[in-house]
Write a protein that binds this DNA or RNA. Sequence first.
DNA 1: CAAATCGTGTAGTAAATTTACAGTCACGAC
DNA 2: GTCGTGACTGTAAATTTACTACACGATTTG
Lengths: 284, 284
Amino acid sequence: MLLDSIRTQLDSLSKSERKVALAVLDHPGQTVSQNITALAKSAQVSEPTVVRFCRTLGYDGWHEFKLKLAQGLALALPGLNEQPTQDDLAADLVNKICSRSINTLLDLRNNLDPEAIQRALDILSKANKIEFYGQGTSGIVAADAQHKFFRSGVPTVAYADPHIHSIAAALLREGDAVVAISQRGNSPSLVRSIKLARRGGADVIVLAPSGTPLADLATVLIPIDLIFNIDPYTPISARLAYLVVIDVLAVGLALQRGPEFRKKMQNAQKALQEFDLQFDSFIG
Amino acid sequence: MLLDSIRTQLDSLSKSERKVALAVLDHPGQTVSQNITALAKSAQVSEPTVVRFCRTLGYDGWHEFKLKLAQGLALALPGLNEQPTQDDLAADLVNKICSRSINTLLDLRNNLDPEAIQRALDILSKANKIEFYGQGTSGIVAADAQHKFFRSGVPTVAYADPHIHSIAAALLREGDAVVAISQRGNSPSLVRSIKLARRGGADVIVLAPSGTPLADLATVLIPIDLIFNIDPYTPISARLAYLVVIDVLAVGLALQRGPEFRKKMQNAQKALQEFDLQFDSFIG
DNA sequence: CAAATCGTGTAGTAAATTTACAGTCACGAC
DNA sequence: GTCGTGACTGTAAATTTACTACACGATTTG
């Protein structure tokens, strides 16, 4: 949620803005009930710096920031921030991990920018060719996207190998589209490929945390500001958010294709159901 | 939540305050982004009346009321059961798909059997070798599982190709474990492979709907009984449930390995962060 | 070493919320 | 019936709060 997004962007903040960030992270609960003056004082900076901090994070100003922070805190489920330990029963484990994941999605629902989605859909619906690039964990997301778009009747390709996608990117032209997926937004090889794609005139939709090098290269940025969790035992629930965004794009694109297309797909689905034994490797 | 409390107190409000209440109930979403003047105008009352309204409900003033309302809205699950249609704006799309996914996970949290998880963890923690089999969409889940277990320090393999996993299954012995993943639970080739695996003495953990052929072959069944949605435009959010179950298993297994192992992994993670530019294809 | 850019705080401005006050309406008593 | 009392509401002023413009200092770049 918002606090995670602050942690992520901590490096890209200036000295005074970082003071504000730390003050907020220290006492998020207080922050929402305070006014800008009090926060400025406790962070030992001036009020305008606080405003600038809010703007840097992508909000209109203090008011909007405070509101979003309050909403984020509201979603913090009980026991959320406790780490699972060895003493946990399986029940605890299930509960905590589910709750954490639910939270991630609640957060996504509140913060995902519909306008960005709309612009992304506009690009995708006009594109001659759609390619997904992602590495590591995001490579799996890319593969999932390819699968899902395919099921919606849109043929695409997904590449996880840097060498491959750099070659593919160099072949893109105007009217083509790439969806770049990255949880950190700073993978050099991915950045390189995306630069190539843009140079060729292709549109680039970026799914990454805002303020990252990759985000800056986007034609359309769909910012996903969730923490990249350092603890290796915490599941990377951020990935769920990426998958859901892909869902949104796939469904949105399918809807834009109109009803007759929709009908055609329903028939295909129906046929698939009847013969699912033959097609079993498709459904899984 | 707050809106309900307003409805309850509707009778005990004065005429003008009731106007405010109705305006808030009509457009709760707008209310949180508006200022007191705008709300007063749309309720056709004066600003002080709005303040009095907030006080009557037990809040300090407009600010606190607005904050609490925003928090309440963040937790609400609006428009949950409606189908997305072509008329939908992107905002609707985002809202509906997120809500649907959230529901799936809420459902999972309520129904996932911790005991089955515990037995699965027992098997996995003793296994010499762990393999994931899944086809189609579930193949991506399997790949994700392999990735995640790898990150938790447990080397595994994942196969999506029926020919490959049938060969792999034939090679399994007692002390080995397979995790079979299937959304329908009736893929003949997967069933065949699992039979082979059991014949060799391997334990089989099945993630599938209960009552399916695959479920019947399980040493430990982790039943995932969610509706397999027929509408091709509905994202298969069931897949999210599978991913979260994988999360649970990965975290649980890592925890069972004990604290010294945990520490070792944290160091590895730390090193990874420091050199993430070199390792970028790993993180994504 | 100079120029320029970025970051920060000060002071002033605009906006929004709250308070104080006064008018109006309803109801009850004389 | 009219006068008074209390609650309710709006107007206008006051105060708090957030934001803008500008200037100074630091840090980077040519």
